[in-house]
């Protein structure tokens, strides 16, 4: 069997967006597929609208729960400014998944800081591919803003070495029973979006290996 691919991922966003559940599901999927996995995050302030980050690693054997800078394969940002906050973690040429959605921090509300205007191009300075989509709007259209995290996992799933069935099983176990169908549907919607970018990403991976 081929060596297991070691990957590092950063999930970033704002408290209340479901980031911790998303990273929990990813860890479950990695475990199902026979990987060692660790994730790290900080609780407590998460529900109070602060910046939230969760780091996920999987490999044959993982030591540090924190990712070394410049080694993340992807950053998944549930709020677009938050991608920039953790951009130092991204390896050059890595993937950024950007929810094109703005949650104005209090510092901007008070006029003591400015919301960056060109998040996408700033990300492009380091990323090989930036997927920017209005995922919050899609979640609202699907009938529940809380499925944003599962949509986002759907987009991400194309770029990770896991089978779709492992994803679906992990989601089934983790979400409340009465929301299973809603979430599985959200995952499929996310996968449709991700599918549009897999060709570009393949080019990227090939170019990197050459």
């Amino acid at each position: 069997m081929a060596a297991k691919k070691a990957m590092n991922l950063v999930f970033a966003g704002v408290g209340g967006q479901g980031i911790l559940l998303a990273s929990d599901i990813l860890c479950d999927v990695a475990l199902r597929e026979g990987y060692d996995t660790k994730k790290s995050e900080v609780h407590g302030m998460a529900q109070r609208g602060g910046s939230v980050v969760s780091q996920v690693r999987f490999a044959e054997k993982v030591y540090s729960p924190l990712i070394p800078l410049g080694t993340a394969d992807a950053i998944v940002a549930f709020e677009k400014l938050e991608a920039l906050r953790y951009l130092d973690y991204l390896k050059p040429g890595g993937l950024v998944i950007l929810n094109d959605h703005k949650i104005v921090p209090q510092t901007v509300q008070m006029g003591i800081a400015e919301y960056p205007k060109d998040v996408l191009s700033l990300c492009s300075g380091r990323a090989g591919l930036v997927i920017s989509e209005k995922l919050t709007d899609l979640a609202v259209r699907l009938g529940n803003i809380r499925v944003l995290n599962i949509i986002t996992l759907g987009v991400l799933s194309h770029f990770l070495p896991f089978s779709e069935s492992s994803w679906l099983e992990a989601i089934r176990v983790r979400v409340p029973p009465k929301y299973v169908d809603l979430n599985l549907g959200a995952f499929e919607e996310g996968r449709k979006i991700g599918a549009r970018y897999t060709a570009q990403f393949q080019d990227l991976v090939t170019a990197e290996n050459e």
Binding site: M45, A113, G125
Partner: peptide
């Protein structure tokens, strides 16, 4: 990754 970009802090509220 970023030079000369000041990101707005997002403290808990």
């Amino acid at each position: 990754a970023l030079k000369d970009v000041d990101l707005p802090a997002r403290p808990p509220v």
